[in-house]
């Protein structure tokens, strides 16, 4: 605990939800009553832990945790795609597939960034992504075009997977918005 008591309380102020600001003021004033730097430090550190707990339990904190988990999963999936795309490139067919997987990986990473930035932007991204993937899949399955190095069934499978991922993201953004929107739950 090498930070000063005032620094611990400053961090507590950043973490404490707005509904608990009165408690923060009480903690800050109570610190003034304590003599001894060690005691003050222990008290202030405990207040920081309490603020961290309250922040995590608040709707905003829980939403942040859920979105961080989702973004981490998307980012991990994108990394796996990139690693797979760089392996076993033995000819023009696998090269074309690896380029496509890299594009998909970058697309998913954008999703991860949007998940942290804005649920509204994520909804738009997922909606557009789903429409494009669904259209591509239906075209590939119905017309079955032949491409130089990429069998249409591989493309259709990737489109199906992308459409599924985008639909999941879209539903997740709606659910997270409903679950953690104070305007809906705090009457």
């Amino acid at each position: 605990m090498i930070l000063s008591p005032q620094t611990w309380l400053k961090w507590a102020a950043k973490l404490m939800p707005p509904s608990r600001k009165d408690w923060l003021a009480a903690m800050q004033n109570e610190l003034e009553q304590i003599s001894g730097p060690a005691e003050q430090n222990l008290f202030a550190f405990g207040c920081f832990k309490a603020a961290l707990l309250e922040g995590a339990r608040s709707r905003k904190g829980l939403s942040w945790l859920a979105r961080s988990g989702g973004a981490a999963a998307l980012f991990a999936f994108s990394t796996v795609l990139i690693l797979m795309s760089t392996k076993n490139i033995s000819g023009p067919e696998t090269l074309a597939l690896s380029k496509l997987m890299t594009v998909l990986a970058v697309f998913y990473m954008c999703g991860a960034a949007l998940l942290m930035a804005s649920l509204k932007a994520l909804k738009i991204y997922a909606g557009i992504g789903f429409c494009i993937a669904a259209l591509m899949m239906s075209y590939l399955l119905s017309a079955a075009p032949s491409y130089a190095y990429l069998p249409s069934k591989y493309l259709a499978a990737l489109s199906f997977e992308t459409a599924g991922a985008m639909a999941t993201l879209f539903m997740a953004s709606i659910y997270l918005n409903w679950l953690y929107d104070p305007a809906i739950h705090d009457a």
Partner: peptide, 22 residues
Amino acid sequence: QYGYALMKKTGLKSGTLYPILM
């Protein structure tokens, strides 16, 4: 009781006490 006095009497640290009070 005040917060610090409660801490002293119960032996609880502020990180435990204040969430209970909340």
